[in-house]
Design a protein around this nucleic acid. Structure first.
Lengths: 147, 147
DNA sequence: TATTGTTATACTCTATAACTATA
DNA sequence: TATAGTTATAGAGTATAACAATA
């Protein structure tokens, strides 16, 4: 098998593995009562450092206008609160509530969960980590996000 | 770094790399005048073995009703033709046209393209292939598709 | 009755543009 | 005048349910 075929194989398999990861994540999000996008928004909110909606849009790599709807859902579910910033009344600070912290913990867990990698030994896992890092350092410029 | 953190790191990076891959693919699809879903549909059509729409839905892992709209687009672009199967007049066979073959070749190329992997030596690439295979063999049951 | 493809409809995600209330 | 958040709107992708033609 020559290099091009080998690389094509890797690309296909990577897509396959990531689709499976995504699939599991989305079904857990659904169990938590969240759509995938809402779950990812909650994931980006640091419960210990409330931040304005503007920042969230930036971290999600999407337009501000979408954040409105996402936060609407999270707020209706009681997971997040909007508070007008007294220092600049244009801004609304997004605060993760008590229940929000709990749900967010579930989101964080599944997003870094790795049952999929169970087949690998510790050493294989380290090797994979190094290779994937090498690829993403080199081939992933600024514009990439993790959506 | 313990195993859980290591695995979480791998998961994050994998998502990152695949997002970058997807990003590049989608922009090439756009240059070819195709939406991502239409491009993936064309990718699934074997020019040498025309098949009914039913099969395409199955390969894409989506509902038949979506295939209608996807094939509408491909047909309007002159890349695919619908032909009623004389043997079973309920079925419509999807035939990739001459121009369709050319565009499909571009889709196939970018979907197995691997400039992203350029940073790896031949040996590293083989190692990565083996590890990714191991993961996908073990951790990806039937329900996964490559979307 | 069962199946193929289609239509109608709805929901999610995302983007652009225009609006408001602040600054 | 510029910025933060919102609203209105649109397009892509996907799903369910009902329908016509055919088997």
């Amino acid at each position: 098998m020559d290099r091009a075929d080998l690389a094509a194989d890797v690309v296909r398999r990577l897509a396959h593995v990531t689709a499976a990861l995504r699939h599991r994540q989305d079904s857990v999000f659904a169990e938590l009562g969240l759509t995938p996008a809402a779950a990812r928004a909650l994931h980006e909110l640091d419960p210990d450092r409330p931040s304005p909606a503007r920042d969230l849009a930036e971290r999600l790599g999407c337009d501000r206008s979408n954040v409105t709807a996402l936060v609407d859902k999270l707020e209706q579910a009681g997971l997040v609160e909007r508070r007008t910033d007294p220092a600049d009344r244009r801004q609304k600070t997004l605060v993760v509530t008590g229940p929000g912290r709990g749900v967010r913990a579930g989101v964080v867990e599944v997003m870094s969960d790795s049952r999929l990698l169970a087949a690998l030994s510790d050493e294989e896992l380290r090797t994979l980590r190094d290779l994937v890092w090498k690829v993403s350092d080199d081939g992933c410029p600024e514009q990439c996000d993790t959506r």
